[in-house]
Amino acid sequence: MRKKVMLAEDDQDDQMFFKEAIGEISNEIQLQIKNNGEELMTTLINDHGPVPDIIFIDLNMPIKDGFSCLKEIKVSEKLKNCTVVILTTSNNKDHMDLAYKLGATLYVCKPNNFKDLKSVLNEIFLRDFTVSNLTGKMNYQA
């Protein structure tokens, strides 16, 4: 089954690693990458196709940060039920708590290497997010 995935990430290297990991996991994943939160939200609001199966958002982005995007997604009638994964370098407990309070499905600290990134993403894609209360913390930071 083909999955539609969006990534909002301003770091070009992180974008490349994410794209490569997705490519190795499955050719059934359609990935769109946005360079900041404003690009993400503009695309999500204006796209008349199906909403993404999973939206990955970095917290620290220029123009519009991940928290702002998460707030907008969760108040949007069109987007509020989307699976949103915060994928960030921040392992700050206050950031984690706020992300969950705002409606994040998962909060994941970015892995330090490609192998671990691929493993984390594979685990995420194997989860069934249609079952309620499947939020949780995944922290693969060394």
Rank of each mutant, 00 (worst) to 15 (best):
E9Y: 13
T135H: 15
L44Q: 11
K19T: 14
V84L: 00
K78G: 06
L117H: 06
Q15P: 13
I63Y: 11
D58P: 11
I29F: 15
T130A: 02
G103V: 00
Q15L: 05
Q12E: 11
C69P: 02
L40R: 01
D97R: 10
I29Y: 15
V84I: 12
T83D: 09
P52K: 05
A142H: 12
I55H: 02
I54T: 07
L7W: 06
E39K: 07
A8H: 00
D13A: 11
E24R: 13
G103E: 01
C109M: 03
E24G: 09
L40M: 12
T130M: 08
E77Q: 15
K137S: 02
L31M: 06
L121K: 10
L134D: 10
V5L: 04
G66E: 02
L98N: 14
M41A: 02
I57T: 03
K64Y: 02
K118W: 10
I33Q: 07
I45M: 04
M1Q: 05
H95R: 01
I54Y: 05
D14I: 05
D65G: 09
N81P: 01
L70Q: 04
E24H: 10
T88D: 01
A142G: 13
L126N: 15
E28C: 05
D13H: 15
I54S: 10
S90A: 11
I45A: 12
M1V: 01
L70A: 07
K19Q: 10
F129I: 04
K93R: 09
N92E: 08
T83G: 01
I57C: 05
